[in-house]
Design a protein around this nucleic acid. Structure first.
Lengths: 239, 239
DNA sequence: CCGACGACACTTGTATACAAGTGCGCAATC
DNA sequence: GATTGCGCACTTGTATACAAGTGTCGTCGG
């Protein structure tokens, strides 16, 4: 039942088969498949074959193949011994590893950001924390502002490699997050943790900034792990 | 002059055009180009076009294209605004960033290795350090054993994500190392640093293991940076 | 002599055609 | 009835063909 995903966005021949067409094609296929894998529409272990994707999306095998290779480089799909690919399995133990890596990378970015931040930047970070505090009770607002905070730090860090590698695993983080979201276990507020990061940066203490950010991510990891635990076969509530 | 690299391994038509042919083709092209970029045969900023590579390697554009995409995912080539690709430029400031990231990742791996190492593993690491000490005067032996040490730790860590991301930047590390090798500045011995890592693992102190490994990489970074400094336009002694 | 216009050659992106290898299912036989 | 052999359908990997966009070079006009 998990073999054939439901990419039934449109028929084979008809015009825009779910992808915007004015984009570069391969990129569009990549974005589409990536989204479906992250949100669970494409179930873990689902086999993806070029001909059926090609037919369902209304493009030739060439862009499909390219998209598949991109996803493979990102490890969102894994290569089968025979040469095909399937959606990467979800493994709770693996989630921990993803967060471990993320903690180090974001920690490094926080350090770099600390070393480059101008007074204006510090003020902006403080404003974001205050804003986050203000919307404390509205969960999605907190999430939105939180993402903005992390984005701001990443931008400040101006660390091409840290960002690149972070981007590499972001898909997987989002994937586990999407899964955890279904087993909602009350979100704890990370406002104080963010404030700790902002304060460390304001104090011009790179080591403290790195440590604070790392601790923050590790706490998120523990939370996510808790949500995921008991998921057993992670495919339980997936289509 | 930098537009056409010297992939003249063989003519267009003739049999094995420098690539082993029994490999998957695209993979062979990828390996070949990757090696040439790392060792400097393909100069930074050199433009790579599918038709000429295709002709010079004696394969069609399809595998060449695939190899190029792989290299792009690894950031060994960068996309031009027009769509083509060129060999990623060498930037000393960037080298520092690469090593920063590597320090965190290898630090994490050392921690994980520490948490999983059996007494046998600890003994093996100690043996490697002793061996390294023994061959202290033979530079390439030191390098070889050192690589083995790092590989052992990575294997022990059994951290898929750490390894994957480390692999992502390894090409760049090797590239800067190859460049630094030409401006040889006496290698300092890292034997003691390795011993510190091994000792921390033997003491079952994950935090110390991580810190020791990170410090070790950061010292390597400083060394590499020193070698690279003054390189100015990094393409000076490149073909 | 300098600037602008036009055509060309070149590039990538996509589609299709071809070849080879592999696993699966069916059928016939022991 | 179980097993083994054959044949088919399917897959990926590669090659080639086609279309569109873009930069450049040459030439013509001011």
């Amino acid at each position: 039942m998990t073999t054939t995903p439901d990419l039934r966005a449109a028929g084979p021949a008809p015009g825009d088969a779910g992808l915007t067409r004015r984009q570069s094609g391969a990129r569009a296929v990549y974005d589409l498949l990536r989204g479906r894998i992250i949100d669970g529409t494409l179930a873990p272990d689902a086999r993806l074959t070029e001909p059926v994707l090609s037919a369902e999306l209304g493009v030739s095998r060439t862009p499909v193949r390219e998209a598949l290779r991109l996803l493979q480089a990102e490890a969102l799909v894994v290569e089968l011994p025979t040469g095909g690919v399937r959606v990467a399995p979800l493994d709770v133990a693996d989630a921990r590893r993803v967060y471990d890596v993320r903690a180090r990378l974001e920690g490094l970015l926080a350090r770099d950001a600390c070393e480059r931040a101008t007074p204006d930047d510090v003020a902006r970070l403080a404003r974001l924390v205050a804003l986050m505090d203000a919307v404390r009770d509205h969960e999605d607002e907190v999430l939105r502002v939180g993402a903005q905070f992390h984005g701001e730090i990443e931008a400040l860090a101006d660390n091409r490699w840290g960002s690149a590698l972070l981007r590499q695993i972001r898909g997987h983080v989002d994937r586990y997050r999407a899964l955890a979201a279904r087993r909602r276990v009350g979100t704890t507020d990370h406002v104080d943790e963010h404030r700790a990061v902002a304060d460390a940066i304001a104090s011009r203490d790179p080591g403290a900034a790195e440590a604070a950010m790392r601790a923050h991510i590790e706490r998120s990891a523990a939370l996510a792990e808790q949500s995921l635990r008991g998921a057993g076969s992670a495919t339980d509530d997936l289509p």
